[in-house]
């Protein structure tokens, strides 16, 4: 039956091309059988809220990774911003504090980007430096103490819902849509892919590479600022020790989403799914009462599996 065979191979191709989504669906099905508390409204809302900071940061980081770079400073910048927003709320009010916070995050990215683009420092090193600097500054300005947020409007946003969907998750959806628009429809998105695919040829085509590079790090800093603000609204504190090790989760989300750390390959939607996958894994393991130490091991194994699947898929498609 050649017709049937053709159909199943076409189906396989479709599954392969959407492997991140397939992985996500398989995980949801598994979650249904593993825990009867998983699909309760409370838990789903909880997951949606929890996944927001990781989702937002991963999407910003994706742009850096698309150019072949990396940003290790995301967690520290988030912490710095959460402290800044908590400190400035009383004096500057809601709008002022948010603007200043977004500016602080973006500036951190601008500095990383400039070190990479104009001083030729390797992204790993440049953002490693910014990572410790941002963490240090957060500890200095907070004197090492959590800063409690004193603003009811700000606090209520973290727990509010719109049409039954947590407002915070709507922020993530908005960021995703904007980032996808930037990726697909704009000259900037095109150039980011070009730089990551072949930097030399892009430079030889008369494109100013440093501008693109600075822009992606600034974008990453901007999304970290959003995530920092969101953390403050959810927890009610600006914490200098927030999101330690968060860069690893974010990198994992981007990679699970099928992006290549060599640059040039990866999509916004799949990165969002990657972040959701990681959030769901954590949530599921909590529901199943798996101890924290074990959770780390399981998480690592799942990341390896996802990446192996991705490379197997590459081989199949290329053949």
């Amino acid at each position: 039956m050649p017709g049937l065979k053709m159909k199943s191979s076409a189906l396989l191709r479709l599954a392969l091309s959407q492997s991140t989504l397939v992985f996500f669906v398989v995980m949801l099905i598994a979650a249904y059988f593993l825990s009867d508390r998983f699909f309760t409204p409370d838990n789903v809302t909880n997951i949606l809220r929890q996944s927001v900071p990781l989702g937002v940061v991963s999407i910003g980081l994706l742009y850096v990774i698309l150019t072949g770079g990396i940003d290790l400073s995301v967690g520290s910048v988030m912490a710095l911003v959460s402290v800044v927003v908590a400190l400035t709320l009383p004096d500057l009010g809601l709008t002022g504090a948010i603007i200043v916070s977004l500016a602080v995050g973006t500036c951190a990215g601008l500095v990383s980007g400039s070190l990479v683009a104009y001083f030729g420092i390797a992204p790993f090193i440049a953002t490693l430096a910014i990572m410790t600097i941002a963490r240090g500054v957060a500890l200095i300005v907070s004197r090492g103490q959590p800063i409690f947020v004193d603003n009811d409007t700000f606090m209520s946003f973290g727990s509010s819902s719109f049409l039954g969907v947590p407002s915070l998750f709507l922020v993530l959806i908005g960021v995703t849509l904007l980032a996808a628009l930037l990726y697909r429809q704009t000259v900037f998105g095109r150039l980011v892919i070009a730089v990551g695919s072949n930097e030399v040829a892009t430079r030889f085509a008369g494109i100013n590479i440093p501008t693109i590079k600075v822009a992606v790090y600034a974008l990453s800093g901007f999304t970290c600022a959003i995530a920092g603000i969101i953390s403050a609204t959810r927890t009610g504190v600006g914490s200098p020790i927030l999101a330690i090790g968060f860069e690893l989760d974010a990198i994992a989300a981007v990679v699970v989403g099928g992006a290549s750390l060599a640059g040039g390959r990866g999509t916004v939607i799949n990165t969002l799914i990657g972040a959701l996958i990681l959030s769901i894994i954590s949530n599921l393991m909590n529901l199943m009462d798996i101890p924290g130490y074990h959770q780390q091991v399981v998480k690592g194994v799942i990341i390896v599996l996802a990446v192996l699947m991705e490379s197997a898929k590459r081989r199949l498609i290329d053949r």
Partner: peptide
């Protein structure tokens, strides 16, 4: 140095000329 092999033919063709094929930064 010349072409960006994984990108599409039309993306390669317009890389030096993005101003003509975009408006306000949108392709």
């Amino acid at each position: 140095q010349g072409g960006i092999l994984p990108m599409t033919i039309s993306e390669n063709l317009t890389l030096t000329n993005l101003r003509e094929v975009s408006r306000f930064g949108l392709c």
